[in-house]
Structures are given as structure tokens and as C-alpha cells.
């Protein structure tokens, strides 16, 4: 009986650690995704033509 209790308690502790690690990994992954998204958005620059070019379309 004592062995069973010890095993059960030890197994419970292991599960707690695994759950905590999994939660930590999920949190880190979410934060990483947010950073990646922010950097992707910020670097989405382009080369823009000013509206005057559109107004003179076909004028030449």
C-alpha cells in the first residue's frame, strides 16, 4: 500500500510538471507568433506611385 501511494504521488508530481511545461511552451509559441506577425506586418512596405500618375494616364 505504501508503495502504491508513493508511486501515485510521484506520478502526480510528474504530471504537474509536464502540464506546466506544456502551458509554458504554448505561451512561448503564442508570444513568438505575435512577434513574427508584428515583424511581418511592419516589413510589408512597397513602392507606391503618386496619384498624379493616374491622372495623366493616356495623356501622352
Amino acid at each position: 500500500m505504501r508503495m502504491d501511494a508513493h508511486t501515485s504521488r510521484k506520478g502526480g508530481v510528474d504530471m504537474d510538471i509536464i502540464v506546466i511545461l506544456l502551458i509554458a511552451l504554448v505561451v512561448i509559441a503564442v508570444i513568438g507568433a505575435l512577434f513574427a506577425f508584428a515583424r511581418t506586418r511592419q516589413r510589408s512596405g512597397s513602392v507606391l506611385a503618386a496619384p498624379e500618375a493616374r491622372q495623366q494616364k493616356g495623356s501622352s
Binding site: Q42, G45, S46, V47, A50, A53, Q56
Partner: peptide, 20 residues
């Protein structure tokens, strides 16, 4: 940090930049 490069396509001169 430079984001967009804006130019006048009819006169070709660089107008400026939008920024991050």
C-alpha cells in the same frame, strides 16, 4: 524605419517615404 517609397510616376521624382 522606411516603410513605403513614394514617387511621382509622371515626373519620376521621389516624393518621400512612409515610416515604421
Amino acid at each position: 524605419e522606411i516603410k513605403d517609397v513614394v514617387y511621382d510616376a509622371s515626373r519620376h521624382h521621389l516624393v518621400g517615404f512612409t515610416l515604421n
